[in-house]
Design a protein around this nucleic acid. Structure first.
Length: 815
RNA sequence: GCCGAGAUGGUGGAAUUGGCAGACACGCAGGACUUAAAAUCCUGUGCCCGCUAAGGGCGUGCGAGUUCGAUUCUCGCUCUCGGCACCA
């Protein structure tokens, strides 16, 4: 019979989704497993190969767990708010709602074609008002608990998208979405205080089984450090400057102070509040120039970049050395880091050294380096930033860096010159976007009462119908133009008030979506608490490397916050996180339209079928590595599928009731290997094992294989090739569906064989094999080896030692 | 610069308590079938010497070390990829 993938796949796809084979049952007696894959943004271009890769991995695992007897929740939904849809809507003059509907329908059809075993009764969509009602509810709770506040902040502004971006959305100074350079701009923004949870977000990782690189990425991003803020008096004026440092042990080597151009003192100088001797116009010119620079320009060529700056004419007084330190303004100091002012220790900081050299400031070594150098620091190679031993530092001399830091911190605090503080690389989260296609932030600004939350019972604040979605150049959301929506009575005082017109960032809807799958129709709560207790936490979360920091951090934060409110049952949302690699184009470059190397799943499913596409994606290489697409290798999997089909259909009447020893041993071994591999998310090797098994089947007669073994073989293959195996299962006359049948069991006891082959090494080199009974003793083995001419000739000189690892290997040591 | 991962045939990759390196697949070469091509099937395929043999030598990025034995463990390098970064 000929293998017709198209016919088979259409037939079973329909049948599966008409039945309940993939339904997850709330409160079922079986042990639960919540398998989550990142839900996609339904773009107009359809399912991407990366989606197919990720979802196939999840599907193989979910199917395996289901057959292993677990009650598996494997849901899917749509993260549908976002700029591409909005931009497309503007271009086509259509409603984003309609476009989203079309796109999700297309995605869903493609997913069904690929045979993913999602439970579609739990489908969610972040743009559905019944969903975003709860996204808005979470925001109200954040506001209520003081974790959301409004503030004027310099934000990254993309002039092309006309949108404010979080630091995380700016890649190398460019907009993450459109790639254009960003600038900075002050806007009043809603900010969420994620930093309040910084320590918890680090500590919570201990309770998870995330892979090491994900944990490291999260901890790195949060990056907690202990700082001390030191206050210096300024000579001759009644002002102070506060610098922040993590290396106060080097403070005896401080020779200057640098302010960020945005610093308050700079404003005071320019405003004439502080009189300086220097040419104020020169200072003004420098500050103006640097504020104009975008983040891109300021970060360009970071290493070895020529430092710029201007002297203020002021001096800070170092209480430790009693020396005066010139105060400079330079754009290498960032206003958003520390206090926006740093103390220059050129001998022990590369940037400070560059700056000192540029402007002829003095350089003083105060740490002996790890090679014992105590001399002058004359070149950049000698700048020592590591930990060493303090010198030229009065009472710190001779102390190791860590001890010196502790001692000086205590000293500065006692003297009232410094204050310790904990700071993070993680910043508070800018939560406002000036766009239409997002969740409206449910807040009302009242002339009298200030910011008033929309009452819970009035949620959702639905997106109004608009004529024009175009963002404005003023930075206002397009919603601001809809007056009858914006103007509203204050819920508190009934006076005149206006709605917030900003919408939420993309992350908002995806922070908590896994909760909603548990109870998608609930209109009283995020989800029913009993159901949450049954299903949470997510047992395995599969997704791309690109979401290992931000999405994961944001959603863990929101979940921890919900835990504090008593809304969710566990401290952490995800138990395991498995991240997969990227599929590159056949040219080993990232797939992109401009490179013309994009492969979409449909290309393959149309030509070769979904079973082949799925299996090939898994067979390509390890799930977590980055692999280039290779069109040719696909054919190997196609051949395999055909051979499986042909072998089973052609031998259907031949299969016996008992395996030959060889077949029995092989299938048992493969059951063990495949099970272990899938459990550990190594999805590539089971395919190879199953190919080996088929090779063996083909080399023996059908009569040497039992029907039971064929059935087990199909079960092992079922997670990879759900359609083909279902078809063959039915051809074998078995009852629907293979995907609900129990996974084959691995028999532990080793099969007793007449003889085994033992490799023989001489001085560690393989010289041959010898066939022996398994229970042979070392003595007998030795005799047998030396009776064998072909072995004996390799043994030269005296035999010093013979090592026999029972049943595995022999090594003869001689000289 | 910091953090993380990695380096195995022509290619993707196997090999986890240290024990037969190269499973499986692609590609390539030869053959069968065919008027022919495609498809399919069979055989061979790490490199070098050797007669297309027998046989031997070399071989998991480089250099040392531990061990009877190292792709695997230790130390020191080189390079590649991913993330972060004028973070003071």
């Amino acid at each position: 019979m000929k293998y017709n993938s198209k016919k088979i796949e259409e037939k079973w796809s329909r049948k599966w989704f008409e039945s309940d084979v993939y339904y997850a049952k709330d409160f079922d007696e079986r042990e639960k497993r919540y398998v989550l894959v990142e839900f996609p943004y339904p773009s107009g271009s359809g399912l991407h190969i990366g989606h197919a890769f990720s979802f196939t991995g999840g599907d193989v695992y979910a199917r395996f767990m289901r057959m292993s007897g677990f009650n598996v929740l494997f849901p899917m939904g749509w993260d549908a708010f976002g700029l591409p849809t909005e931009n497309y809507a503007i271009k086509m003059k259509r409603k984003p709602q309609e476009i989203t509907k079309e796109n999700t329908e297309m995605f869903k059809a493609q997913m069904k074609n690929l045979g993913f075993s999602f439970d579609w009764t739990r489908e969610i969509n972040t743009t559905d008002p019944r969903y975003y009602k709860w996204t808005q509810w979470i925001f109200l709770k954040l506001f209520e608990k003081g974790l959301a506040y409004k503030d004027e902040k310099p934000i990254n502004w993309c002039p092309s998208c006309k949108i404010g971006l979080a630091n995380e959305e700016v890649i190398d100074g460019n907009c993450e979405r459109c790639g254009e350079g960003t600038t900075r701009r002050n806007l009043s923004q809603w900010i969420v205080k994620i930093t309040d949870y910084a320590d918890r977000l680090v500590e919570g990782l201990e309770d998870t089984e995330f892979v090491e690189k994900v944990k490291a990425a999260q901890i790195n991003w949060i990056d907690r450090k202990e700082w001390i803020d030191i206050t210096y008096d300024i000579k001759g004026v009644n002002e102070r400057v506060v610098v922040a440092t993590t290396r106060p042990d080097t403070n005896f080597g401080a020779t200057f102070v640098v302010l960020a151009p945005e610093h308050d003192l700079v404003q005071k100088i320019l405003g004439g509040k502080i009189k300086v001797g220097e040419d104020i116009e020169k200072i003004r010119g420098y500050v103006k120039e640097s504020l104009k620079k975008s983040e891109l320009d300021r970060q360009k060529d970071v290493l070895g970049r020529k430092k710029t700056g201007v002297f203020t004419g002021l001096y800070a007084l170092n209480p430790l050395t009693k020396e005066k330190m010139p105060i400079w303004i330079a754009d290498f100091v960032l206003s958003t880091v520390g206090t926006g002012a740093v103390v220059g220790v050129p001998a022990h900081d590369v940037r400070d050294f560059e700056f000192a050299q540029q402007f002829g400031l003095s350089i003083k070594r105060v740490v002996e380096d790890d090679k014992g150098n105590r001399g002058e620091v004359g070149s950049i190679e000698n700048v020592f930033v590591g930990e060493g031993v303090a010198m030229n530092s009065d009472f710190l001399d001779g102390l190791k860096t860590k001890e010196a830091i502790e001692k000086i911190m205590n000293y500065l605090e006692e003297k009232g010159w410094g204050t310790r503080s904990i700071r993070y690389h993680l910043r508070d989260w800018i939560f406002s976007r000036q766009h239409y296609w997002g969740e409206p932030i449910p807040m009302i600004s009242c002339e009298k009462c200030g910011w008033v939350p929309v009452p819970e019972e009035e949620l959702p604040v639905a997106l109004p119908e608009v004529e024009n979605y175009e963002p404005t150049d003023t930075g206002e959301s397009p919603l601001a133009k809809i007056e009858d929506w914006v103007n509203i009575d204050c819920p508190k005082c009934k006076g005149k008030a206006k709605r917030e017109t900003d919408t939420m960032p993309n992350w908002a809807g995806s922070d908590w979506y896994f909760i909603r799958y548990i109870d998608p129709e609930n209109d009283k709560a995020l989800a029913d608490k009993g159901k949450m207790k049954y299903w949470l936490p997510v047992d395995v979360y599969l997704g791309g490397d690109e979401h290992n920091t931000l999405h994961l951090l944001y959603s863990r934060f929101i979940y921890q916050f919900l835990y504090d409110l008593g809304e969710v049952p566990t401290q952490e949302p995800y138990f395991k996180r498995i991240s997969h690699g990227v599929i590159l184009g056949s040219d080993s470059q990232r797939m992109s339209k401009s490179r013309g190397n994009v492969v979409v799943p449909e290309d393959i499913t149309n030509k070769l079928g979904s079973d082949v596409a799925r299996t090939y994606l898994m067979f390509m290489g390890p799930f977590d590595s980055t692999i280039a697409w290779n069109e040719k290798s696909l054919m190997g999997v196609k051949r395999f599928a055909q051979r499986v089909y042909r072998f089973v259909t052609e031998n259907i009447d031949e299969f016996s009731t008992k395996d030959s020893e060889l077949v029995e041993q092989k299938i048992n071994e493969v059951v063990g290997d495949v099970t272990k591999s899938i459990e550990n998310f190594r999805f590539n090797t089971p395919v190879a094992r199953l190919m080996e098994t088929l090779n063996l089947f083909e080399s023996v007669k059908g009569g040497e294989i039992s029907k039971e073994t064929i059935k087990n073989f199909l079960k092992l293959l079922a997670p990879y090739m759900p359609f083909l195996t279902e078809e063959l299962w039915s051809i074998l006359g078995e009852e629907f569906s293979i995907h609900t049948k129990p996974w084959p069991e691995y028999k532990k006891q080793i099969l007793k064989t007449e003889s085994i082959e033992i490799p023989v090494q001489v001085n560690g080199k393989m010289r041959g094999k010898i066939s022996v009974r398994p229970e042979i003793t070392e003595e007998q083995l030795k005799k047998k080896i030396f009776a064998d001419e072909s072995m004996k000739k390799h043994v030269v000189g005296d035999v010093k030692k013979l090592i026999y690892v029972k049943g595995k290997i022999v090594n003869i040591v001689c000289n």
